[in-house]
Design a protein around this nucleic acid. Sequence first.
DNA 1: GGATAAGCGAGACGGTACGTCTCGTCTTTTG
DNA 2: CAAAAGACGAGACGTACCGTCTCGCTTATCC
Lengths: 214, 214, 214, 214
Amino acid sequence: MSSRSANDSKRRPGGRSARVRQAVLDAAFAELGEKGYGGLSIEAVAQRSGVAKTTVYRRWPTRDELVADALDSRSDRNEPIPDTGSLRGDLKEFCEGVRAKLTSNHGKAMLKSLVAAVDQSPEIIETVERFWRERRDVGGQLIERWIRRGILRPETDADLLVEVILAPIYLRVLLPGGPLTGDVLTGFIDLALDGVLEDVTPRTDKHRSGERNL
Amino acid sequence: MSSRSANDSKRRPGGRSARVRQAVLDAAFAELGEKGYGGLSIEAVAQRSGVAKTTVYRRWPTRDELVADALDSRSDRNEPIPDTGSLRGDLKEFCEGVRAKLTSNHGKAMLKSLVAAVDQSPEIIETVERFWRERRDVGGQLIERWIRRGILRPETDADLLVEVILAPIYLRVLLPGGPLTGDVLTGFIDLALDGVLEDVTPRTDKHRSGERNL
Amino acid sequence: MSSRSANDSKRRPGGRSARVRQAVLDAAFAELGEKGYGGLSIEAVAQRSGVAKTTVYRRWPTRDELVADALDSRSDRNEPIPDTGSLRGDLKEFCEGVRAKLTSNHGKAMLKSLVAAVDQSPEIIETVERFWRERRDVGGQLIERWIRRGILRPETDADLLVEVILAPIYLRVLLPGGPLTGDVLTGFIDLALDGVLEDVTPRTDKHRSGERNL
Amino acid sequence: MSSRSANDSKRRPGGRSARVRQAVLDAAFAELGEKGYGGLSIEAVAQRSGVAKTTVYRRWPTRDELVADALDSRSDRNEPIPDTGSLRGDLKEFCEGVRAKLTSNHGKAMLKSLVAAVDQSPEIIETVERFWRERRDVGGQLIERWIRRGILRPETDADLLVEVILAPIYLRVLLPGGPLTGDVLTGFIDLALDGVLEDVTPRTDKHRSGERNL
DNA sequence: GGATAAGCGAGACGGTACGTCTCGTCTTTTG
DNA sequence: CAAAAGACGAGACGTACCGTCTCGCTTATCC
């Protein structure tokens, strides 16, 4: 994995290069967690990893590439898709997983790093997109399953649904917007599933609000 | 109001102090727009505003206070509440306004600044909360109106609804998540209003999913 | 003295600036003596003088300016003109003085520094020329005196004479050319004073060597 | 001869080793001419000669050895001894030759290299001495000839005379001391040949200055 | 209406980190 | 097995800002 890494398949998997590479990524990841993106200095990473500064620069010409690589080397792949037996239960578990990750020390640092670093380098953007795509894949499969079971309407836009449910969670991590209790998560889920309109209008009217001023 | 500013109501509104203050805030705001939060240097602000560096430090001991003050001095207050005659129209207009602000150069810089600066200083948190509260107030009043008109269910949580609709917009500004076209905004609104469940379950079952596995 | 120094007459003669300046020049001079021109690093000078590297750079933008200033701040001015009562005695004393200076640790380092640095910066050239001029002035006055006393021919070119006598001394310091004993110095002086031709030709023939193949 | 070179007579005169050796020396010599001793970097030499840096280091452990070898490989041997028919003419031609060499790009770089490198390694000292010895040999033979012809006094110290005449030339190359025109050279020669004393004292008094205060 | 205290400009200072350069060593691959 | 290729540790380079400080000068307020 980490298929974009600077010097993959260098010479030998266990050679000096590989050891150096791992030491630097570990140090960078740790520094990210402690100081955040803005506080990460190449100098500190080099020192922490016991590697010469020039070596860091040789492999990762910019800070962003290092950050992207460090985050990437730690990203969970193959996350399991919740299967609790109920739609709300699955979504709740999905959200809980996201919350757990994001509110951790590293998760928060990572998210903030991405925000700070985005639109600075394509590497970071790539990382963000992969990061985002993974969530959407898990959520998407989950939703597909409930569409097939007839609980969700067939025309449901899975990506949109995932986005609407997850966005408030992400945002509350990024900006001080109140705690992320289980109830709050349930609130997001219910709102997305049920909507808030008075239940008097046939679905077919949805986009023609007509005289009822929807 | 800027009620927190270091030396408000110093001597005279048109005195040297006031002029200096304004020049610095203008410069800081401009720099924020051009370089973003991470790229804002006190040195540059001082030079751009034609003010001695020491003067900046005297009034704004930390960079965050300066940023908060600069953002604050430009924030729109008294935003009008949309009134188009339809709920979806009002929400669309509301979202369009938010989008317009956030996707502007300054808006984006400002949002990123806030994210970067949060949990560093109480001043910033205060600014974020005021910033957020204003949106919620406008959205809240808008929603209250449509509850009173019987279009939205009385128990609707206005803050929650606003959060669910706006969060994806904010997030797409912060992370590279696709364009913010009018259709996308409509998608967010519709999902929040209508939900995505097959319309077969009475509302009262909402929290007891029962055998239908909602 | 040191009339070209970066920031003369800064604020106060005993202020922090002056102290810093002196500390740096002392350190630079010492480093020059120990490591020579090529081995002098700004970093080392800064550390040795207990001054921040940036401060050194602020006052002496280039290494050469620092070197020139350091050498300059130590150069003896107002050297006494020997007066032993005899021409050869005066010249011997003059040469002994030059030798003593040049063969000292610092003298040698300084001379080599000048050679290495010359044709790199005008500052250094200026220093070399002042350095050289001082010698020529002393020697020149000495020689003038003996011209007036009728021992040296009136048309004697003082500068030329000084150059011919001193050059071998300088060169033996710069290149490994044998020891500089008192006898060697006397040899240079005698040769310059007496010449080596068979003493059969009238002076007036000097530049018309004629049939005698001079 | 280059008898000191690291790996002389390695494989075969035309083998890879020899080709590499020559390429490196050529490149080093060229770099010396262009950048001078101080500006010569092993890295540049390696690149210029199309050879791996490690190869250079293997054969010439220090920069000085490389420089010495490069200079040595180009030094003129078997310089002709001038024979113009007059002493002054011979010396003039001799001096012109020296001047021509030293004021050339390579000559100057070489001389400065020697000064800079001396007392760093025995190899360099050896080179300097050979370099110096060659001059003295040529000058010495020239002078011997004119002693035999009765123009110069028999007790003339040839080495001393050569040194006194050449030293100012060398020095003017090393330090900014004015141009080296033909007249200046003639001045050095005349002074050394004729001396500058009023011509009233018998040679035998030379070292007993007596009442006339020589 | 002239002292007087503040705010201000100017800029030196000790620091930290930057990203680059060259050094000389060491390891790994190639011919 | 030696040359080639190039990663590595080391450390100086010169720059940019940081936040602190001292110093005179200019204000505008208060006596």
